[in-house]
């Protein structure tokens, strides 16, 4: 089980969180960009990174907030976390 450092509550066991998938996936602006390839990329294509992966987690059984985590997908080591909007 991972220990995930919530930037608001501190380190907590993975069971308190839900996984939100790859972070920083940008939604195309609907009105200006109806391009199917762009929508396809937004909806379905993921980096599926082997290595350092930026991902969203939500502290559902805690503060309920979303934030981001950098995790190494080759070791599952969690390197750090940061709030939405930060880097």
């Amino acid at each position: 089980m991972l220990v995930i450092p919530c930037p608001y509550c501190g380190p907590r066991p993975e069971l308190e969180f839900s996984y939100g998938g790859q972070a920083h996936v940008l939604r195309p602006a609907a009105a200006t960009n109806p391009d199917p390839a762009g929508w396809n990329a937004f909806q379905y294509e993921r980096a599926n990174t082997r290595g350092l992966h930026a991902e969203r987690w939500r502290h559902v059984h805690g503060c309920a907030r979303f934030f981001n985590v950098i995790r190494d997908t080759t070791t599952d080591e969690v390197l750090r976390s940061y709030r939405s909007g930060e880097k």
Partner: peptide, 13 residues
């Protein structure tokens, strides 16, 4: 497991 990974192991829970 809930998250993507290449480690060929998972959590005990």
């Amino acid at each position: 497991d809930a998250y993507t990974s290449y480690t060929q192991r998972g959590a005990l829970h």
